[in-house]
């Protein structure tokens, strides 16, 4: 008999479901309607009955909650083992996780153990010749690739922001089943901490963010980025990951998947190519202006105003004009 389930692995943070989890549910519904499979949500965690009932009610999807003391903060060993126990029972055709630090940590190992394909950071699905094709970004967003699973089962991670969380409530609540994870005690100790410098960030309160990418060329050019941010009353300097990795700016300036998520009134991307990891952190900005010398830079796909120029000449000229017009 063919498996007919799509399992969704829910992720918890600060006592609730992550937004990415709700997006995975939307993804799984789309996948479910494409292949006529039904969804089931699996929640690993500690004291999660209330959350399990809540998501079963709002989504209308059946839920299995896996409870254990060691499933409080995420770590690979207990989570993988607890999830695999339940998955072997359900025997799903697809296992879907968010492409988060938990999701991509877990997915490949689960796939190996289930003998399944693993396709990560999925952004789109469509049917082609009765196969389901999964699209994802490659080469920093310059290429969109399509992959298909060659096995009966597949483990998928869903790129945050690619699907929208549903706000509708289901008519009929899903069922809830709670199971106790059968885990060996004495698991290693995990602690949660804030990244250094995290609290000093000016980004959350800024109306305008001027961000620097590797395309600014050299550290000295940060000065013009700072000046540009300075022409706005509540301007702040942001950066892509590579600029922070180079040590040109501290990680508290970093915007994107692994940094801050911002939504200012205006976002000016300077020399930022627009890798999906960066875009996921700023795409809700009300207006985006991109300055890049490469006309094919993916950042132009999401910008409202696109300026193909060498920013080391363009920004000083712009600053001069601003000065004159004041």
């Amino acid at each position: 008999m063919m498996e007919d389930k799509i399992a969704i692995i829910a992720e918890l943070s600060r006592g609730g479901f992550t937004r990415a989890t709700h997006e995975v549910i939307s993804f799984a519904r789309e996948l479910g309607s494409a292949c006529a499979h039904s969804e089931i949500i699996i929640i690993p965690g500690k004291n999660i009955r209330g959350l399990a009932e809540e998501i079963a009610r709002t989504s209308g999807i059946d839920v299995i909650g896996i409870e254990a003391e060691t499933l409080d903060l995420y770590s690979a060993e207990p989570f993988k083992s607890a999830i695999l126990d339940v998955l072997k029972d359900i025997n799903p055709a697809y296992v879907c996780l968010p492409h988060s630090a938990m999701g991509f940590d877990l997915a490949p190992g689960i796939a190996v153990d289930l003998g399944a394909a693993c396709i990560t950071a999925v952004e789109e699905i469509h049917e082609d010749k009765k196969r389901i094709c999964f699209s994802k970004s490659m080469w920093g967003g310059k290429i969109r690739a399509e992959l298909v699973s060659m096995t009966q089962r597949a483990v998928l991670t869903v790129l945050p922001g690619a699907w929208t969380a549903s706000v509708e409530e289901a008519f009929i609540a899903g069922s809830v089943r709670m199971v106790k994870a059968n885990l060996a005690l004495g698991a290693s100790e995990i602690t949660l901490m804030e990244a250094p410098g995290e609290r000093e960030s000016e980004l959350p309160g800024a109306d305008v963010i001027v961000s620097a990418g590797r395309g600014i060329g050299k550290e000295e050019n940060l000065e013009m980025i700072r000046k540009l941010a300075g022409i706005f009353s509540r301007g702040a300097v942001g950066a892509s990951r590579s600029v922070c990795d180079l040590g040109w700016l501290g990680h508290k300036h970093q915007i994107g998947f692994t940094g801050k998520t911002v939504s200012p009134g205006l976002y000016i991307a300077c020399g930022i190519s627009g890798a999906i990891q960066h875009i996921s952190g700023m795409k809700d900005s009300q207006m985006v202006i991109a300055i890049n010398i490469d006309p094919h830079a993916p950042i132009f796909n999401i910008a409202d105003y696109c300026i193909v120029e060498d920013l080391t000449e363009f920004i000083p000229a712009l600053l001069e004009l601003v000065e004159i017009s004041r």
Partner: peptide, 25 residues
């Protein structure tokens, strides 16, 4: 392998962006 790459393309540009024209100034 358990998955196969079937195609690669450049992603479509969104229609909303306006490219500013003219010289730098």
């Amino acid at each position: 392998g358990r998955d196969q790459l079937i195609s690669m393309r450049r992603p479509e540009a969104s229609a909303k962006g306006v490219f500013l024209e003219g010289g730098s100034n």
